[in-house]
Each structure stands twice: as structure tokens, then as C-alpha cells.
Simulated scan of single mutants.
Amino acid sequence: MTFLAPATRCEVPRFVGADDSYGGPPAGNPEELRELVSKARSYKAIQASSGTFHIFPEYIRPSETLVLEFSDERSAQARWRMGSWLAKAGSPVKPCNPVPRTG
């Protein structure tokens, strides 16, 4: 788990993603993002609701790693942001190198 300053993210790539939700080009619009996310096991493996996280191990294959990144948004509308991805089995997860988040 990595905790980041506002408006930052971890530089990619840190690991080999288990699905297309990590490391590819950013989605061009909200519909593309929804389609990408709906197909990703990474998205299905963890869900946040009212400050509680639910992890669904049935979406995590043996030896995969669930990688979580949190950033403080310092906003009343969005207090924090979470990124979650599955690292492919055997892919080491490098330490986070914070970089400015764009978009």
C-alpha cells in the first residue's frame, strides 16, 4: 500500500499488470474508462463503499499481488483517491516514485 501527496501518482511501470487496467494509455473519455474498468479483474478484486474496503479473493489468482495507492485529495467532495491493480504472478512491485498526476 502506498500513501501519496495530493495531485501525485506513482510513476509507471512499477510491475507487470495482470490485466489491461494497468500501464496502458489513459482512457480518452468516461465511457472508455467504464468499459476498461468493467472488464478488469483488478477492479473486481476490491471495492470501496462508505470508507470500507471489500476484497474479493475469487478475482485474485495464486501469487498475484493486489497493489493499492491512496492519495489525499484535500477536498470536501473527494477526501481521498484510490488506485488498485493486480500485479501478475512473479512480477515484483517496485517502490513508488511519486510524480505529478495529470488529468
Rank of each mutant, 00 (worst) to 15 (best):
F53P: 01
S63K: 12
G17I: 10
S38T: 01
Y59N: 03
P25F: 12
G90C: 11
N97E: 15
S84W: 15
A27M: 07
T2P: 00
V93K: 08
Y22G: 02
F70D: 01
E64T: 01
A48K: 03
P95C: 15
N97M: 15
F70L: 08
F3E: 10
S42N: 04
G24Q: 07
T52I: 00
E32H: 06
E73M: 07
S75F: 06
L86K: 04
G103A: 09
S63I: 00
P30S: 13
E31V: 14
E73A: 13
R74G: 10
R9T: 07
P100W: 10
G90T: 11
A78H: 09
R41W: 08
E73L: 01
F56C: 01
A87L: 02
M1N: 07
I55S: 13
R101K: 14
G83Q: 14
V67K: 03
R14G: 06
A48F: 14
G24A: 06
E73C: 05
I46G: 10
F15R: 03
R14Q: 12
L33H: 13
S50D: 07
G90E: 14
P6D: 09
E32A: 15
V67F: 13
R34V: 05
E64L: 01
W85R: 01
E69S: 12
G28I: 10
K88R: 14
L86P: 05
G51S: 02
T2E: 14
R61C: 02
E69N: 08
F3V: 11
C10F: 12
F53I: 04
T102Q: 14
P95A: 15
S91Y: 05
S63G: 02
G23R: 06
A45W: 11
V93M: 07
S75V: 02
A76N: 08
D20N: 11
T102R: 13
G83P: 00
A27Q: 07
A7K: 13
P30Y: 05
P6M: 12
S38G: 00
A45Q: 02
Y43L: 00
L86D: 05
T102V: 08
P92E: 15
I55M: 14
I55K: 15
V12G: 07
C96M: 12
C10A: 13
T65K: 08
E32W: 09
P95Y: 15
L68C: 08
E73F: 00
L33I: 01
F70H: 04
S50Q: 07
R41F: 11
I60F: 11
M1L: 10
